[in-house]
Design a protein around this nucleic acid. Sequence first.
DNA 1: CCGGATCCCCAGGGATACTG
DNA 2: CAGTATCCCTGGGGATCCGG
Lengths: 214, 214
Amino acid sequence: MRSYGQVCGVAKGLDLIGDRWTLLIVRELLIRDACRYTDLRKGLPGIATNLLAQRLRELEQAGIVLTEQAPPPVATTLFRLTEHGRALEPVLKAIGDWARPQLAEVDEGDTFQTHWLVLPLRFYGEDAEPDEPSVRIQLDTEDEPLAIEAGGGSVTARVGRLADPDLVLTGPARPIGRLVLGRVDLDEARTLGVEAKGEVTALQRLNVRAPPGG
Amino acid sequence: MRSYGQVCGVAKGLDLIGDRWTLLIVRELLIRDACRYTDLRKGLPGIATNLLAQRLRELEQAGIVLTEQAPPPVATTLFRLTEHGRALEPVLKAIGDWARPQLAEVDEGDTFQTHWLVLPLRFYGEDAEPDEPSVRIQLDTEDEPLAIEAGGGSVTARVGRLADPDLVLTGPARPIGRLVLGRVDLDEARTLGVEAKGEVTALQRLNVRAPPGG
DNA sequence: CCGGATCCCCAGGGATACTG
DNA sequence: CAGTATCCCTGGGGATCCGG
């Protein structure tokens, strides 16, 4: 990117992360930790492949991303955030906090992927019953499976599959996302095609609060 | 800007504020409150005038900026942030926090303007002696005058001139900025061309702390 | 299949001139 | 003062192709 050439923290920051797609690449890496090139492409629908490669080079040069060679039998390049890169999480959180109202006006053509639930759950998720034993919820949608665990007062979510979940939610990604974030209840989600198998009360443990000021 | 088309708070936010120059326009409006078109242009060296006009239109349409007609004898258009626009301050703060280290590597061609001190003073400034009577410091550089006041534990700064300052700092903008932010002491600043007239101990009242995690 | 590189085309940004 | 109009050029979108 062309530098703004200003002695100002905001301008200097935007020199590094102000380019199109850059912060969304960081988002994907915050969600997935270590990440293949193809994972990034799938999580960034519409990005041109040359652009992704160029951004990754720039991010590596800026000390935000580092690459490593995975050992066989994987034998592929993995991309990962440096500590300086992980320090961008508050920036993404601030943008997300601010944009919460905009999230209501979702366009019909907008895409949704299940793993995008990870950051909102990390930022706003609480365990409603901290003293109860923890519960595990498995999301099974058309794209990647997501594993959610609530216990000890906090909520964690990651891409992948749980060994023995208390509750499995199967169906289209969008309604499952709205159910997990507490925007619809289970009855309404069922009419939208969501199937729940197991301990449905586990959903009560997920408490997703509103961002500050929203 | 072209929308990312993703059901994700970060992406939705970037749809509105991810364009080049946009957040720097917001920065200028956070510094100055009400602002003429020409003030914005001076504070954004290098921006194309058509681009500034276009961004202001987009920001107004997004409910971030509003325009008002100043009454005579000023008789000009003023730009101001809406409440939704002022809510972007934490986003700028998060970027500034993150970019603090980058601010050390300033290029020689980079420009600096005195009023850019307002946000760092607002974010990181503390009054070192909350119980003492407040002090007023006037900055007089080649560009606009800046008025700083420290008292009651906090620091405020705004563009403009004080009636009877306790201390007046005159000289080139860059060294004055570094002095106010505590990056050089008064002796070193003097060798860089800064003149101090009045109660020089007033500078001790300014305490500019480091951002979280930096 | 993974990790890109290459090519073409268009939209968005930069610089300058001009106008109500 | 507050923009519009214009021209040019770079950066981004989209597709295809290529080496490992």
